[in-house]
Design a protein around this nucleic acid. Structure first.
Lengths: 113, 113
DNA sequence: TGTATAGTTAGCAACATGGCTAAGCATGAT
DNA sequence: ATCATGCTTAGCCATGTTGCTAACTATACA
């Protein structure tokens, strides 16, 4: 029940950009170098590096250098806080529906009297 | 297989702010007026209205005026594109693991020779 | 050693975001 | 009719984001 999870801010923000989502989709299929990601997106290298650092700060991508090439790898576990949040919301929503249900049932019982 | 879904941009962006997530959590429990949302957050009304419009544009909240009070309601269906995207990513990732698995199996078979 | 390749860094410009105050409008209560 | 309430709009300010170019570093290859 995190009141103000900065991790979620970073996660959702990272995913709110189509270029970053494209990068992630590529990386979900396997690791790739920065230049390949740049090629796929059509953006210049510095731009991609910035996006990459956003993804890294959100924990969605881990990178390491092999010689002069930086290899980027998708980190699926980083999505967990998001799915947890979704689940929390669903629970709230369903509890609400349950209460509504009770309410309606009571109304119907009252009517029968 | 949306190449550049602007809907997802709006969705993820809307969820990237803690104040907006707090508003959503409140609304998941049932409808509320703008003033109540402002009270919960501690921010001023205009600020909350701005957040509200972001949530509305993402389709996450629907509002309507009853007299002079605007009632806000959570729209859980709006989360669907996000869960779909998550599912797509998961598939990509698992396909990758499958290919890795095949690769390792082949390696082991080679070794047996 | 020299040259091409792969990143990296600094910094600029345009625009978006998130907070605010002040002033306005519409509705409900007296 | 008047006043309080609840929302709405306009506009300001500080900061963050997203693209770029230019200049730099570091590694591989000949």
């Amino acid at each position: 029940m995190a009141k103000h999870d900065p991790n979620l801010d970073l996660l959702f923000h990272a995913l709110s950009d189509p270029t970053r989502r494209m990068m992630l989709s590529r990386l979900a299929k396997g690791p790739a170098a920065v230049t390949e990601l740049a090629g796929l997106s059509g953006f210049k290298l510095p731009t991609i590096l910035r996006h990459l650092s956003v993804l890294e700060e959100a924990g969605l991508v881990a990178t390491q250098k092999d010689g002069r090439v930086r290899s980027c790898a998708f980190q699926p576990k980083a999505l967990q806080p998001m799915t947890d949040w979704l689940e929390d919301q669903r629970k709230l929503w369903e509890a609400r529906l349950d209460r509504l249900d009770d309410y309606v049932m009571n109304l119907m019982k009252e009517r029968e009297k």
